[in-house]
Design a binder for these strands. Structure first.
Lengths: 153, 153
DNA sequence: AATATTAAGTCAATAACATTGACATAAAGC
DNA sequence: GCTTTATGTCAATGTTATTGACTTAATATT
């Protein structure tokens, strides 16, 4: 790798860092008003987009321990954002869904990001979004896959 | 925003989350072997790429409090990775630089990311990298700028 | 020269969070 | 019946973040 390439890649490392921080900025601010943190957003996001997710699946996708998930998940249930019911087939596992207020909060948080990103992609030229998605998909696939994620649409 | 667009943007939110996690994965593993964390990498990265950075500038770019930076920075100095000398013009401020071993560790950490990203960009088609950089630059610029960052090369 | 300001370093109290290990319950599977 | 699985919880410990305060040294202001 020559110096010129290395320098370009360094620029890319900085961009990734700052871009991700911008990406999490607005939701973090909204969460703070509710005295919640980023982990709560992640829970709301994945439960919202994969309703009926079990606790174990949520642990797998977030890559955290059961004990680490316990507190924020319990808070979301107690605050009435997340609902938790035994599965019919296997009543040991519990299916997570969002309540109406949970849907509303998740929408508020993710809308901030969707509107933001939509604006950026619209301002960029044709094909830019496809290219970005291609790169980020390649990066995402370089990690252990979680089965149900392929249902994402 | 129609449902189809919203669905595409949801996919993008997931990609951003997982791609960033892949991005930080290898450095995190290397850091763990040294009993260090991501904040140490950030310090090493910015000190390495902006030698002579002052403590205040580092605080600004990382957006953390002086007290939060204190411990990890002190550790890096005590471990001999970072050097800390009074500035000539204004001897109150102290200029941070990497030692030789600090350079080596920073290189090890960032190389993991550079090699990884270089591979992804190479595998993607022509123009893909430029598009990715365009999007991430736009995102990065949507946040308070830190003066010296424009020197980035 | 005296005073104020700035940069940096540190300490202490508190709160928040993660980690490990253990244990309990209920439901399924064998 | 015995074992395994999914979940929930607790406690102890360690780590990290946050807030506020204070100190030192150097520089700027008046």
């Amino acid at each position: 790798m020559d110096d010129r390439r290395k320098s370009q890649l360094n620029k890319i490392l900085v961009l990734f860092y700052f871009a991700y921080r911008t990406f999490t900025d607005k939701p973090d601010q909204i969460l703070a008003k509710h005295h919640l943190q980023r982990v709560h957003h992640r829970i709301l996001f994945f439960v919202g987009h994969f309703p009926g997710l079990t606790v174990n699946q949520l642990l797998a996708v977030l890559e955290v321990s059961k004990q680490a998930l316990h507190k924020p998940l319990k808070q979301l249930v107690e605050l009435g954002f997340v609902h938790n019911a035994p599965a019919e087939r296997d009543r040991r596992s519990r299916l997570l869904t969002l309540t109406d207020t949970g849907e509303a909060l998740e929408k508020e948080l993710s809308d901030a990001q969707r509107v933001f990103l939509d604006q950026i992609f619209t301002e960029a030229g044709t094909g830019t979004e496809e290219a970005w998605v291609q790169i980020m998909s390649a990066l995402s696939q370089k990690r252990p896959a979680v089965g149900f994620l392929k249902d994402l649409q």
